[in-house]
Write a protein that binds this DNA or RNA. Structure first.
Lengths: 217, 217, 217, 217
DNA sequence: TATGAATGAGTCTTCATTCAT
DNA sequence: GATGAATGAAGACTCATTCAT
């Protein structure tokens, strides 16, 4: 639509449509906010700084965002998928192998987001953010849980363990593994194996591994 | 003079040192700080508020603490032992039973502390606190790790799992279980069983359980 | 746009830059600071007061000055030349006449500055300011000293007096004369004569005076 | 009196009479105040510090002095005589010699007092102190002035100089010489000679000097 | 008298937000 | 829409002075 109208203008200014510039500014602000939040923490970053870093005036910040918090929410919601651990596919092959690549993959995604620490800074103060995240985690949990239930029905998962409890544990381990906050970095290969023991009885693991072997040959 | 009088008093209270009132005030401030930090978050609580809540003047706050952070550090260091998950005893009986009571116990302790959220709020901004906690976690990790190594040498723990990785996982699960931030509360009995699978091969669990049975008969 | 309009205006004011208002505000703050420092003393004047007196908000003060001290330094450095006594020209005519007009002139300058008392209040606490002033006085002393040396070489100044000591005395007298802190105002004409005796032997004074007389006829 | 009574007391406590202890405390406070004012400046010294340095409680400070200012006033009034330059005796011998020893003597006294800088810090803020000092200086000025008048009547002082102006100059030079704030220390011998030229015609100086010579032989 | 803990008014400073241009 | 100067509420912290013991 916009384009349609614009094309009719002869001799119009070198064209950068208004909205487009606006989008660019908003983006610049988001990027700057993200960078500064990650670098200096949420509270230590002022709206003025974000504006300056984005190359716009302080007042412009408030044209695009009602306040600092809103900008941050944009960031979080944008990256929410990346902040959450993905759902493992349990029976598509060697579970240890699958979990390992999933862990690596997730760490990479978290590395790209880097907002997790900032999120944690805000969580206790921002019930809204807390709710958003809780909701997302609930979804994630349900998906993992359902996958586990299906596997359990086929007798592939420990019979006496509650899929919900397993799902919770898997989520927690994935999250924390990727955050790597302890200093001593976690061996993902080991962790994958460990999660395997938690989910599958030994004989199932062996079977899935040999099936995988067969497939790949 | 005072001593002279006091000596005449039979059954008088143990001499109330001048400091006692001071200690009470310091305690009141700590309690108020704790309450407000938990209720409103760290940043949202001012020194003035803490003082008011403790029923003293602003200046009094600064007689006892150099600033808000110091008060908080007092709280944390005081409760540090309670903030950290305890070391499980792996082979003193049925591991599922042991882990279960450990989890319950730990949750109780965390419940009494309640500072975990506030700690998390400060962690990204306070390298000092971060270091203190990291240190404490390292200790905890080592202790668990050593226990696991001993058990592994006796062939009681999965041979192909790294004790360090197991210890890390156990710590993470304990921590998160007690925090119960997901909304859907975790079934500790299930979690205990789950950790058991992570640590011991099935036959060991059975053996430990039957030994326990024998003992208790 | 603005430029376009402005170009059409004949005899319009030189372009009023955005900064101009800012400069005015800074000036207003400086003036208010000056007034309040002089009136109430440095320590008794708060940044808030200065801002209020200048008709701006407290925060505005801190936009222009990092703190009270910086504002004061601006004032001092601005007026430093006026705070210091000028160099007398010894032999351009009747020395008593020359010194007299120099004294009057200097008093006028000090009267315009009025910061001397405030400077004195800060001197013991501000090594920086002390150094700045000492430096300036050293320069002044050297200049007077050199003038005296030249005159001494021509035999116009007491042979047995050290030019440095004379210069120091002259400086001290000039400074204090202008400050007029004693209540009983100093007769500049007398003081000029007095300094003359300090510098020149009687016969030189007479000679310079008669030369001056000759010139002016 | 006090002693008389006390001697009658048999078995009295090792005697330190109340008032005497009080006097000691007051003295200790004065000494500490003096030390701290000189060391750290007036504003930078708190009542609490003075009390602590004197080894008494904060409250005790306020028993003896209504506030910091009063303590300072005690100090100043106590040392006022030392703070002011003494009156020169003009005709008791070689004036240059007399002035020289007077200068040395005065510097020694100022050195013992050391309060001059602190006085200056307070002067602009304390009209009372300012008045006290002005008064003292007026007295001093008058005494010097009278001495000069007598000498002038005998024809020993420049006829065309106002004794008041001379007295003022002498005072100023004496004061500033002793303060020695310039860094380059003043040669007192030179200064004495210089003041001599200011007061006496050359032939009088010669005469006074030769009389002195005669006397001392 | 002596104590020193307690007070709270007052200062400095920051920063989210508004608004005239 | 864009600017960035201006605002002023609010927080951290100090210290002269009081007062219960």
């Amino acid at each position: 639509m916009r384009n349609g109208n614009d094309e009719n203008l002869v001799g119009s200014f070198p064209f950068v449509p208004r909205q487009e510039r606006a989008v660019k500014k908003k983006d610049a602000l988001l990027q700057s906010g993200r960078y500064l939040f990650i670098t200096k923490g949420y509270e230590n970053t002022t709206a003025k700084e974000i504006a300056a870093h984005a190359g716009v005036a302080t007042g412009t910040f408030y044209r695009y965002f009602s306040d600092k918090r809103q900008l941050f929410m944009y960031l979080v919601k944008d990256k929410l998928a990346n902040l959450l651990p993905p759902e493992p596919e349990w029976e598509a092959g060697d579970p240890e192998q699958l979990l390992f690549s999933l862990l690596e993959n997730y760490q990479q995604r978290l590395y790209e987001v880097k907002l997790d620490k900032v999120v944690v800074e805000l969580l206790p103060k921002d019930p809204d953010l807390a709710e958003t995240l809780k909701e997302a985690k609930r979804n994630m949990h349900n998906r993992i849980c359902n996958g586990l239930k299906r596997a359990q029905e086929k007798g592939h998962v420990w019979k006496d363990l509650d899929p919900s409890a397993i799902a919770w544990s898997v989520l927690v381990l994935l999250e924390n593994a990727a955050k790597d906050d302890s200093g001593q970095s976690i061996d993902f290969r080991q962790l994958a194996r460990l999660i395997g023991r938690m989910v599958f009885p030994p004989e199932i693991i062996k079977r899935l591994q040999s099936e995988q072997q067969a497939k790949s040959e």
